[in-house]
């Protein structure tokens, strides 16, 4: 029998605190690299100028005064928790929220949570949106995602018919992203969740946006679909900031799980070019 590993929740709080601040100011290297490649390849002069500004923005932000985007997002946390872990000295969710609150205050990040009806800003960016997954082992893996409102609004879940199949999925994704056009701050990263059920597809789609940019799905069928969708999007003409060009999306990531024989759930989660996510293994 494996032994229980105790983890003080203050470790989680500090990890969240550091991830949130790093995410806000430092673009992940994989995305930065893709943007540099896109700048080289872009054929539209305006599109190229936009990408140049986007690259400059990454540099200005890395100096630590101005966050990458004024919308420093809702704090979305994916946690893979080893089943042999026992959190001690407090409540896990409270610790996550404390880490978020401290980070957003100390690092001058925008507080963006509000009451849905009165629209009153809650002033602390709480609560964090936490998704936990129990996995084997005694480690904890945390993915922190600062999710902005502009790209999140250009997301959806659609229950397709099984007969829609592969081509129906591709068409739905491509049509949706083209319709969203300039709104979600292209060049975007498109997360697609196929299967599971209604809410599972949405979680898969968001998790897909956290994958390292350029990594393909190991299932060759899905890798091919990712490539086909990406080509269609970059042929749409939308381009960087929607001002025209061949860089509408930097990547398309698909995650898939089995679904019910009567359903074909499809979720599309759009991430902007400042797709701020960080991860740590504890």
């Amino acid at each position: 029998m494996s032994s229980i590993r105790e983890i003080n929740v203050s470790i989680i709080e500090d990890a969240i605190y550091n991830l949130a601040i790093e995410a806000a100011y430092k673009l992940p290297d994989d995305i930065h690299q893709k943007e540099k490649e896109a700048f080289e390849k872009e054929k539209s002069p305006v599109g190229k100028a936009v990408l140049e500004t986007i690259l400059k923005n990454v540099e200005v932000s890395a100096q630590g005064v101005f966050p990458l985007c004024q919308d420093t997002g809702l704090a979305v946390v994916f946690m893979e928790i080893g089943q042999d872990v026992h959190f001690v000295e407090g409540n896990l969710i409270d610790a996550i929220n404390k880490g978020v609150e401290r980070a957003y205050k100390d690092a001058y990040l925008r507080k963006s949570t509000c009451d849905p009806l009165t629209r009153k800003n809650l002033g602390n960016n709480l609560p964090a949106i936490v998704h936990t997954f129990i996995v084997p082992g005694d480690k904890v893996k945390i993915f922190f995602d600062a999710k902005g409102g502009g790209s999140e609004s250009m997301s959806k879940v659609q229950m397709l018919k099984p007969a829609d199949g592969r081509d129906g999925i591709i068409k739905t994704v491509v049509d949706w992203v083209i319709e969203a056009g300039p709104n979600p701050c292209p060049p975007t990263i498109i997360g697609v969740g196929i299967g599971g059920d209604f809410e599972r597809s949405a979680i898969l789609a968001k998790k897909a946006t956290l994958r390292h940019l350029g990594e393909k799905n190991p299932d060759p069928r899905l890798a091919e679909m990712e490539e086909e969708i990406l080509t269609k999007l970059n042929n749409s003409g939308i381009g960087p900031a929607g001002l025209g060009g061949i860089t509408t999306s930097l990547g398309v990531h698909i995650e898939m799980e089995p679904c019910h024989i009567a359903t074909l759930p499809l979720a599309i989660n759009t991430a902007c070019h400042v797709n701020r996510h960080k991860e740590i293994l504890i």
């Binding site: 500004t53 985007c69 979600p184 900031a241 400042v274």
Partner: peptide, 11 residues
Amino acid sequence: ASIGGAAAVVG
């Protein structure tokens, strides 16, 4: 139209 996400540059 301005460039979404170029917020540090504008700020």
